[in-house]
Write a protein that binds this DNA or RNA. Structure first.
Ligand SMILES: Nc1ncnc2c1ncn2[C@@H]1O[C@H](COP(=O)(O)OP(=O)(O)OP(=O)(O)O)[C@@H](O)[C@H]1O
Length: 715
DNA sequence: CCCAAGGGATTGACA
DNA sequence: ATCCCTTGGG
């Protein structure tokens, strides 16, 4: 079977698949078969070179792509493929750490993973303790800088850190200490600590070097420094490092991805071979031509040929709706038409958007029209309060030192413990240098605090003990039921049916999780939940429309692709229009278009709800960068009450300035460039009032956001 | 010392 | 529209 498929590969593809030893880079455009080569090569190594599956490690970025790769490999090759290590960088590192982190001082393999929400909470805690107000450093910015440091392999004590803001330095220090105390790792740690482990314990590294004779990395253009480091270290011994990528599809700059990794591959791995692929097998001529034209607008780019022998295909459809609701309506009616014609089913259709919030309206519309859909790659579900609460209880059961989780549920359901008590307990913890959980025990034993407070704490402590001592913790379903029962959580929800359904959903997930594996541990369940690695698996083969962000769309393909929100300040996103990040936005759009095999529908809205307010918007500059003769512009049949639309044209190249009319408040508009004598050039984010007295919030690259009286601005 | 209500800020993407 | 934090009443 595998041989059969291989005959379909073109010459260069065969060369790549048959490549046996030494470093190799496949640098090629969208849809040229890079991912296919990875899977074929894995199968080839196993069947032709008798490589043991467990000697192969393949890594990608998103869960969806990793699951897809697993699927494709197991379709190609024999039963053993289960033992090939295929996963995201994060899940691979997690697996390594679960095995070996104990060898590193100060770490323990029962650690739990903090997601971004937990991270922010902890950072706020630390800032409170350090008396750093959130006007000095915003918690989000602190997090971004800490993540950035970890991505570069810098710990809180690294000398390079002196470059950082001194507040951020001290936050990082304390944050790190608190993570250790809670026996928790954040996402960045999964990678960063793995490198640390490899550096400090060469014997561990050697172990894995011996295991992984062959390394394959998909989407290599999006590796950041730590990820590069991991790849480089693991491949040092056998040097069989096989990476594929496309610099035009680099979309993770904000996560520290460094395009130089792929461009310097030849330098980093001496005697590396490079193979280029130029034929696209995925898309129609029109789609490919549109994408090719679009990407020429990026200055920073390596020229690539990409052609296809596929049919000419349809034009690119573009629809300008009067507002976001009508955009959604348009989309559902197009979906309806495509299905009605009978050539496609729901699973052939995908809808992409730039920001997660856009999905809500789309979902409502699809629900209304009874179009089956699934959200992919969204962690929204796990961010819900009721879910986080239940998970917090579970995390405490695994790991009572988990301070963030404990503080989360300390008064859930309400038991009369508030901030003051929490602060008092914090004090005890600090003085005795113990965990927050132990501070509770101490307070009880030594009768600190007032009697009424002690009684409440005691009740909490008894509850926790009952949970922790539950005999069958690894039977996750019973454990969750036990938690629900003991905490009376559902009573608290009363009539909140949606929340109750969500609790039912987490129980379902636990059931599925257990059904799928012979042995389960609570901790594995929690990890899988935090990494969201299982989230999309269960609905994989059902006939549903797929909804996802442009970022999660990378590496996938669909016969029909919808991209919505084609507006300035949304795509390209507002925050990107400052510092040369527009090219990354363009690549993001490029990724979106090139997912399509046969049809592309683009849509945008003239008005859209932002922050609960209607805002006007103009079409994305990217629309005007497509070959206009390939666009079929569709306008609304029946016009609603919209003055905005009639006056609008989509921009041509002569209107190349960034969008200005986002929100109209006299002289100053959101999105407008302004100059301040002290802070330099900036971009207006918000306007309150009008005229020279208006207060405007301006983002300056030099100092961040500032609120300023408008008359102090020159424009 | 807790809690509900109200005001202000906020929403970029992934693991 | 929603989250989060502050505030004043209980
Ligand atoms: N030689 C070939 N003949 C026919 N179809 C092919 C050939 N090679 C690849 N394909 C098909 O082309 C499509 C794109 O392949 P694949 O997903 O591997 O591309 P890719 O280079 O990884 O794309 P991207 O970088 O855009 O994610 C797939 O449907 C694949 O099966």
């Amino acid at each position: 079977m595998a041989a059969n498929l291989k005959t379909n590969l073109n010459e260069s593809q065969v060369k790549a698949v048959k490549h046996h030893k030494g470093p190799l880079l496949v640098l090629a455009g969208a849809g040229s078969g890079k991912t296919r080569i990875i899977t074929e090569r894995i199968s080839h190594l196993i069947s032709e070179h008798n490589v043991r599956p467990s000697n192969i490690l393949a890594m990608t970025f998103t869960n969806k792509a990793a699951n897809e790769m697993k699927q494709r490999v197991s379709n190609l090759a024999h039963d053993e493929t289960k033992n090939v290590w295929i996963g995201t960088f994060h899940s691979t590192c997690l697996r390594i750490l679960k095995r070996d982190i104990n060898k590193l001082d100060g770490y323990n393999k029962d650690f739990i993973i903090y997601d971004d929400g937990d991270q922010i909470k902890l950072i706020k805690d630390c800032m409170g303790r350090l008396n750093i107000g959130d006007k000095l450093v915003s918690p989000k910015s602190a997090r971004a800088q800490i993540d950035g440091a970890k991505n570069k392999g810098l710990g809180p004590d690294s000398p390079e850190l002196r470059e950082y803001d001194k507040h951020v330095q001290s936050i990082y220090s304390l944050y790190e200490k608190e993570l250790r105390k809670s026996n928790a790792l954040d996402f960045g740690d999964l990678l960063h600590v793995t490198v640390k482990l490899f550096e400090k314990k060469p014997e561990v590294l050697e172990n894995y070097q011996n295991q992984f004779h062959y390394l394959l990395v998909d989407e290599y253009q999006d590796t950041n420094h730590v990820q590069y480091k991991i790849v480089e270290m693991l491949s040092r011994k056998h040097r069989n490092i096989f990476v594929v990528g496309d610099d035009n599809q680099s979309i993770y700059g904000w996560r520290g991805a460094d395009i130089k990794n792929i461009l310097n591959f030849e330098k980093d791995f001496s005697d590396a071979k490079i193979i280029k692929l130029e034929q696209n097998y995925r898309s129609t001529k029109n789609i490919l031509e549109a994408a090719n034209k679009l990407i020429t607008h990026n200055k920073n780019r390596h020229k690539k040929n990409l052609y296809t022998e596929n049919d000419q295909g349809d034009l690119i459809n573009y629809y300008e709706a009067s507002d976001d609701k009508n955009e959604a309506k348009h989309l559902s009616s197009k979906i309806f038409n495509e299905i009605k014609k009978g050539d496609y089913s729901y699973k052939d259709i995908a809808i992409f958007f730039r920001t997660n919030t856009q999905s809500r309206l789309l979902e409502e519309e699809l629900l209304r029209k009874s179009i089956p859909y699934k959200m992919v790659g969204s962690t929204e579900f796990y961010k819900r309060k009721e879910i986080k609460d239940i998970l917090a209880f579970l995390k405490i059961i695994v790991n009572p030192s988990d301070e963030i989780s404990l503080k989360r549920i300390i008064n859930v359901p309400p038991r009369g413990i508030g901030n003051v008590t929490i602060n008092n307990l914090d004090e005890i913890a600090k003085e005795r240098e113990v965990s927050f959980y132990e501070a509770i025990q101490i307070a009880l034993k030594e009768k600190f605090l007032s009697n009424s407070v002690l009684m409440k704490i005691e009740r909490l402590n008894n509850l926790l003990t009952e949970l922790i001592e539950f005999p069958e913790k690894d039977d996750i379903v019973s454990l969750i039921n036990h938690v629900l029962h003991k905490t009376k959580y559902l009573d608290m929800l009363e009539k909140e049916e949606e929340r109750k359904e969500n609790i039912g959903e987490i129980l379902n997930l636990a059931v599925e999780f257990q059904k799928e594996r012979e042995e389960t541990t609570l901790n594995d369940f929690l990890d899988s939940v935090t990494l969201a690695s299982d989230l999309d698996k269960y609905s994989e083969n059902s006939d549903q429309v797929t909804l996802m962000t442009l970022h999660s769309a990378k590496g996938l393909e669909f016969p029909i692709v919808f991209i919505v929100g084609m507006e300035e300040n949304l795509l390209p996103h507002f925050n990107s229009t400052m510092n040369g990040q527009v090219e990354e936005e363009r690549r993001l759009f490029y990724v979106g278009i090139t997912r399509a095999k046969e049809k592309v529908y683009l849509a945008g809205a003239a008005r859209r709800m932002v922050f609960g307010k209607q805002q006007a918007s103009i079409p994305s500059r990217f629309i005007s960068e497509l070959p206009q003769e390939l666009i079929r512009l569709e306008t609304p049949h029946f016009e609603e009450n919209n003055q905005a639309r009639s006056a609008r044209k989509y921009p041509t190249k002569t209107i190349s300035k960034p969008a200005t009319s986002y929100q109209n408040t006299g002289r100053y508009k959101v999105g407008q460039k302004v100059v301040h004598s002290a802070f330099g050039e900036g971009l207006i984010k918000r306007v309150e009032g009008s005229g020279d007295d208006a207060k405007v919030t301006v983002f300056f690259p030099s100092v961040g956001d500032k609120k300023i009286i408008a008359s102090y601005l020159e424009n």
